[in-house]
């Protein structure tokens, strides 16, 4: 099998192509994904390759087309719904949370919803307040959904395959800042990454930096700098929020005795707060310092690049949080 160096965006596209070739029931629908080639170009070329039956340009109506995808999934199709940005999935919350997430339960197991809702989540570059939401915490709050947020091209490729094969609704969030990151992908290998398994992105002994999506690379950079100051950070890439691999997280905390949870979402009431709470509940005896959190500022995302960068956690914020622990 050829191994190629692909961007996160290309890795997603490669996985979609392979899965569509393997299973006629897989199709993609969303706004401007076909003729326009996708706002973030993830679906570039797919319309020419698969045609309008399987690459479906929708009107700009997230509740309606998400609902249609859910209904189609109940008949055995495997829709991949692209949200132009996860911020727009707010319009479809009723369909995703009040319908998709509950169908298997409300039917007593009679119906399944093999649906993937994917798209960019989090801040891009000056897209301001209505296009920069981190939605994963909203979804990871909801039983019946699975929620993943891969940080690397390899995981994007391997986790999207798992998502498409899953018989439950999966929220697949892609930070727009990651679309250009590269990784080595073995194409047509069937490579997949299971949900519920965190990745140890960097080994360390002094403090656990726990993150997902783009914040993993922020933590890795912070870890580099801290290494120079003699602090050995372990970086845990959570990558699957629901199900959550608490085993790997707790094992890391048991080793380092300190934890900093880092996430781009609003600091208050986020999924990062949930991770921190679980560490507090389960690892109290292991901790040498209170669990720390580094989150996005609790403000609507401002337009100004200066203010936007103020909101998004960076390496300096992580370093500062680590230094405060002692």
């Amino acid at each position: 099998m050829p191994t190629v160096n692909l961007t996160y965006r290309e890795a997603l596209r490669a996985c979609i192509i392979e899965e569509m070739e393997a299973d006629q029931n897989v199709f993609v629908m969303g706004e401007d994904i076909g003729r326009y080639q996708g706002t973030f170009r993830v679906t570039q070329g797919l319309f020419d390759k698969f045609g309008p039956k399987r690459i479906i340009d929708t009107p700009i109506v997230e509740p309606g087309f998400t609902g249609i995808a859910i209904g189609a999934a109940m008949t055995g199709l495997r829709p991949i719904v692209e949200m132009m940005t996860m911020s727009f999935s707010i319009l479809a919350l009723d369909q995703i949370i009040n319908h998709a997430a509950k169908i298997h339960y409300m039917t007593g197991g009679q119906a399944k919803v093999p649906l993937v809702v994917r798209g960019p989540g989090g801040a891009a570059n000056q897209l301001s307040a209505q296009h920069s939401h981190s939605m994963e915490g909203w979804y990871a709050h909801t039983p019946g959904l699975k929620v993943v947020a891969p940080a690397t091209a390899e995981d994007a490729y391997g986790m999207l395959r798992t998502a498409i094969h899953d018989d439950n609704p999966v929220i697949f969030t892609e930070n727009p800042g990651l679309y250009g990151v590269k990784g080595d992908i073995e194409l047509n290998s069937g490579f997949s990454v299971p949900f519920g398994k965190a990745r140890i992105a960097r080994q360390g002994t002094d403090v656990s930096l726990i993150a997902y999506s783009r914040m993993v690379s922020v933590c890795e950079k912070a870890a580099e700098e801290l290494e120079a100051r003699g602090i050995h950070c372990e970086v845990i890439d959570v990558r699957s929020l629901l199900p959550l691999d608490t085993e790997t997280i707790f094992a890391s905390v048991a080793k380092t005795h300190r934890a900093v949870v880092v996430y781009e979402d609003w600091k208050s009431g986020s999924f990062g707060a949930e991770i921190a709470a679980r560490i507090g509940e389960q690892c109290f005896d292991e901790l040498d310092a209170p669990v720390a959190r580094v989150g996005g500022l609790n403000v609507p995302m401002p337009y100004s690049r200066v203010l936007e960068l103020e909101c998004i956690p960076n390496e300096a914020n992580v370093i500062e949080a680590v230094q405060r622990l002692n």
Binding site: P63, G64, F65, T66, G67, I68, A69, I70, G71, A72, A73, M74, T75, G76, L77, D94, Q95, N98, H99, M106, T107, A111
Partner: peptide, 21 residues
Amino acid sequence: FGGWGIVGGHTPLGAGLAFGS
């Protein structure tokens, strides 16, 4: 296929069943 409690919320699901067939 149900059996739904959100007024209007099931109507796209029904269209989705037709889409599937």
